[in-house]
Simulated scan of single mutants.
Amino acid sequence: MAQPADHALAASVATETGDLLVKTRERLFAAGAGTWEVRDTGDFEAHRHIVERLSEALPADAILSEEGRDNLDRLTADRVWIVDPLDGTREYSEPGRSDWAVHVALVENGAPTAAAVALPAVGRTLCTEPGPSLPESHNGRPRLVVSRTRPPAAAVIVAQALDAELMTLGSAGAKAMAVVMGMADIYAHSGGQFEWDNCAPVAVARAAGLHASRCDGSELEYNFADPWLPDLLICRPEYADDALEALRQVIEGEA
């Protein structure tokens, strides 16, 4: 099981990386850098910082990073850090946007046990210890957070079943943390993500008392040879049964 030092390390590394990314973006924008230079530089510098910090603090632990070469020795490791150094590169490269994140999670036996999600542009890091306090439910229709482009099928199904209103955000981490912070009630995604897209957000969401599962209600598991994850549901507990029922009906109808 994760120790207090693991939770603290996840939070500090995510926060430090976020601070680095904010300064890097400001410097590049000031220099007139183009979109791809901002994205690539942010990805590279954030990945390097995270790997250096984790390797220095815990050299025996394995690391799976979106931006790094995958070493499959992690499959037999007891402890694996799954990280997304810059979740939402598109939003990061657009001046003024704050819906991007840094994900740092420790996985043991397939389950995330310590994690942090930094929202650097708003100066906030949410972590597993102490877990976030879930705000009281708001009055009115449930709010379902979706991507800025076309909503995935899972979101459309849940929105119709629960008469939810849609709100748009960029990165997966920003969407999940919107539910944690009470700005949204449901985040349903289908069409696929990678483990680093939702590992840390799932851990933080659960620490806040939210429901988190696959769209069929099954467990989310991590550290597979193929890090692809087909779907995800994060929501306030009062919406979990209805959302899962709507999704299961569609899944069973397609079988």
Rank of each mutant, 00 (worst) to 15 (best):
V146K: 00
P230D: 15
Y222Q: 13
C215K: 06
R150M: 02
R25M: 05
M167N: 09
Q193V: 06
R74C: 13
M183Y: 06
P59K: 07
A161H: 14
D78Y: 09
V13N: 09
L169P: 07
R141E: 15
D216I: 10
G18L: 09
S171D: 14
D78Q: 14
E16I: 12
D242I: 03
G68R: 08
L233V: 04
H47T: 03
Q3P: 01
V102F: 15
A208V: 13
A62Y: 09
E221K: 15
V80E: 12
E26S: 06
P230Q: 15
A155H: 04
I186Y: 01
N139H: 14
I234E: 13
R236W: 09
V156D: 03
L64V: 15
V122M: 08
E219P: 10
P120Q: 08
L162H: 08
A11H: 10
A60Q: 11
L244E: 01
A60E: 07
Q3D: 05
A164K: 13
G96P: 09
F224E: 15
I251V: 07
E108F: 11
L244T: 00
I234P: 06
G88F: 03
P237T: 12
L169F: 10
L20Q: 13
A115V: 12
D70V: 15
A176N: 08
L210F: 13
L162I: 06
D70M: 10
L210S: 15
D241Y: 01
R39W: 05
R25C: 03
S218Q: 15
G96C: 07
R74Q: 10
I63F: 08
E45A: 07
Q249I: 02
V202A: 14
F29K: 03
H47I: 02
V13R: 11
A2M: 01
A200D: 13
L58A: 05
L20W: 09
E66S: 02
D242G: 00
T15C: 10
L247P: 01
W228I: 12
L28A: 03
A33P: 02
V202H: 08
N109W: 11
E94P: 05
E195Y: 12
V38W: 04
P112R: 11
A188V: 00
I234C: 10
E91Y: 00
A161R: 10
S137N: 09
G32H: 03
D43T: 02
D61K: 00
E66H: 02
V83T: 12
E136I: 14
E238V: 14
L247E: 00
Y222I: 13
A121N: 04
R27C: 05
R25D: 05
M177S: 09
C199E: 13
W228N: 12
A77C: 14
A153E: 07
D73E: 15
